[in-house]
Amino acid sequence: MDIQGEYHIAASPTEVWQRLIDPDVLSACIPGCESMTRASEDAYDCAVMAKYGPVKAKFKTTLTLSNINAPVSYTLSGRGQGGAAGFGEGVADVMLEETSDGTALRYTARFNAGGRIAQVGSRLIVATTRKFADKFFAAFSSGFDVAADDATA
């Protein structure tokens, strides 16, 4: 069950790409991200506070950048461990395409869970993933307006 989305950004693919691989930008866009430290070349350790309805829990997550094809596409994945509750893993394939007035960012995201999180939460996974992905990419896209404002200021 893939979730797809598309955003149009008024910046060149190269500019968008620079921000897509910038850990400070990523951590600012991940909903609930409280900290992020570089673990290796293309991986980061994050602490993410997930808050959905009755759930409010902090997950240690490893964020990985893979399939890197600059400045066109990459795969962003995050795997979180919830201890006895199980695990969750989100993957988003991101593609950039130059358009007449900037860049089209398209993504396909999916989320898998295992253990008790899946047992009790499987019915909520698609809706939660859509919400999470929307928040992330909306924050990412709107970051360019802010960045542009900063540049002109």
Binding site: P54, V55, K56, A57, A84, A85, I117, V120
Partner: peptide, 14 residues
């Protein structure tokens, strides 16, 4: 009926 099962899974810790 929702909160206690969530707390048992340690997905909430009020």
């Amino acid at each position: 009926m929702t909160l206690l099962p969530t707390m048992k899974l340690r997905l909430a810790r009020p």
